[in-house]
Design a protein around this nucleic acid. Sequence first.
DNA 1: TATTTGATTCTT
DNA 2: AGAATCAAATAT
Length: 194
Amino acid sequence: MSEMMVPSHGGEGEQRETPPVLTRSYFLRPTLTVARDLIGKFLVRHNGGELLAGKIVEVEAYVGTSDRACHASKGRTARTEVMFGPPGVAYVYLIYGMYHCLNVVTEREGFPAAVLIRAVEVEGRLIDGPGRLCRLFKIDRSLNRWDLTLRQSLWFEDRGVFVSGRDIDQLPRIGVEYAGEWARKPWRFRLRTK
DNA sequence: TATTTGATTCTT
DNA sequence: AGAATCAAATAT
C-alpha cells in the first residue's frame, strides 16, 4: 500500500483546503437522493466582496411532470424550461409577488426536477424559509439559470459535515395542498436539531 | 384581455 | 385570519 495524499485541514503551517464544490454529477442523481444528501452541505454566496455561507438544514424535492406539486407538471414553459435542462443549475422564481425561492436542478437533461432550499444555518442562526433565505443571500431572478457548479457568485460546498440518516426527518412538503395525493409525499428533508 | 393562483412571510 | 404584491397560468 503506497502512501496516500490526504488533504490537510488547516494544520500548522498549511494552507487550508478549499472545500470541494458540488459537481454536475452530484446533481445528476435521483432527486430524493440529492435532497437527502444536501442536508449538511453549505450554500455559499459571493457578491460584491461579501462572502456568506450557510449550512443547509431543510430542503424539498420536486420530481418530474407527474408530481403535481412540481412546477414542471404544467409542462415545458418559459418559466419551467430551466428544470428540463442540465443538473446543477439554479431555478429561481418569484413567489407571492415578494419572495424568491432558490432551487437546484437535478437529474438528467430532459427530466424536470429540482430541490428547493428551504432553510440554512448561518453562524448558529437559523434562517428558516426559502423567502427569508433568498433575502439574506441576495438571491433573485438574476441568478435564474446560473451554473451552480462554478465557484462563482453562488455554489454548494461539501465541508465534511457528516449527517446521519437518523438525524433527518422526512415530512410532507409545505404550501402544496392543491397537489392532492402528491402533497402528502414525505419529500421534505429536515435536520433534526434536538 | 381578464381573472386566478401561488414551492411565502409578516401583521392583526 | 388576512394582507402584501406580481409573474405566470388559466379562463374568456
